[in-house]
Amino acid sequence: MITLNINGKDHAVDADPGMPLLWVLREIVGLTGTKFGCGIAQCGACTVQVNGVAQRSCVTPVSTVANAKITTIEGLSENGDTPVQAAWVAQQVPQCGYCQSGMIMAVDALLKAKAKPTDAEIEAAITNICRCGTYARVRDAIHSITQA
């Protein structure tokens, strides 16, 4: 058994230590907001926060986060009203929405680390793939927070 602290709550999970956190979250804990997109840390659909830092959970063995604070999209806020989520709604960012949990977790982590990142810092940090091509609105939504 491995004890995980997810969204402020401890979960004892019976998982192989090598099992990626993504699948522990989705299949054992039942938190399906974190998505599978590629399995090789390329697309970022699986992004969660580990001790507040964005991490791609599809390549994160669960044993490596046993003592960490894990935050998923479900735990970001009670009512979906963090500045990033509110900006996403205001800019009507999502289309299919499948990548957006990861996108939001990555942006939230970036802005918690640095409230006013430069455009270069934003572009370097947000490398999540969105096949619907919502990037222009993602950028506008980030700017609506950082330039407020």
Binding site: R26, E27, G30, L31, T32, G33, T34, K35, F36, T72, I73, E74, L76, S77, G80, Q85, W88, V89, Q92, V93, P94, G97, Y98, Q100, S101, I104
Partner: peptide, 19 residues
């Protein structure tokens, strides 16, 4: 969009999410 709120909170249900 009527699907907006669920798509920023991880609540939007996709087929892959069924348990």
């Amino acid at each position: 969009r009527l699907d907006m709120k669920d798509k920023v909170t991880g609540k939007a249900a996709y087929a892959i999410d069924i348990n």
